[in-house]
């Protein structure tokens, strides 16, 4: 089964895209939140909150990566594995991007927006599948997304170690 998994150098750019979007959203929201927290939370407490945020974001990113790898194992190699880096990056971009837009709308309209969930999900999956297909067919698109994803790998060097430290801190704080 491991043979069906893509190579590490193909996984890294996909994970970089996932991390960039998920962490980007969380960090932007965190920065928006600071002015209200600063009224009553001390700096060290805000850092601990950030530690929790990084931990949850890290675990969320890994789960999404596992979700993509699961499909890679499940589907025939020519559908997903051969061009995993480009297809995975485009699928991540469309899926997570769509979730971000949905959550933004949900935040505005509340539970009433839930009814659009299934349609939204269906359209999103279709877009993700279509973009993945294009990544196989259109060389320029494949190269463009790989160019972007490769440059995003830099964020992994920052966020992954920080998140591992954060995860350890959360575990330690809740044991001792």
């Amino acid at each position: 089964m491991l043979k069906r998994l893509p190579a590490k150098q193909d996984i890294a750019p996909v994970f970089a895209v996932i991390v960039s979007i998920i962490y980007g959203w969380s960090i932007a929201a965190f920065l928006r939140k600071i002015p209200s927290w600063i009224l009553f939370l001390q700096v060290d407490e805000i850092i601990i909150v950030l530690v929790y945020v990084l931990t949850v974001t890290f675990l969320g990113s890994i789960l999404f990566m596992i979700f993509l790898l699961f499909f890679c194992i499940l589907l025939p190699v020519q559908y997903f594995k051969n061009y995993f880096a480009a297809q995975g990056a485009l699928a991540s971009l469309s899926l997570i991007g769509s979730v971000a837009i949905y959550i933004n709308r949900y935040s505005e309209y509340g539970a009433g927006f839930l009814k659009y969930g299934p349609i939204w999900l269906g359209v999103t999956i279709m877009i993700a599948v279509f973009l993945s297909y294009l990544a196989i067919r259109v060389r320029f698109l494949r190269r463009a997304i790989l160019w972007v994803a490769d440059r995003l790998i830099i964020f992994l060097y920052v966020f992954v170690p920080l998140s591992v430290i954060s995860l350890s801190m959360v575990i330690l704080r809740n044991i001792f």
Binding site: I22, W25, A29, V53, T57, S61, I103, N104, S107
Partner: peptide
Amino acid sequence: NPIPGSLPLAS
């Protein structure tokens, strides 16, 4: 908290 801070957890 008008907009949730985590895409995975909010999902």
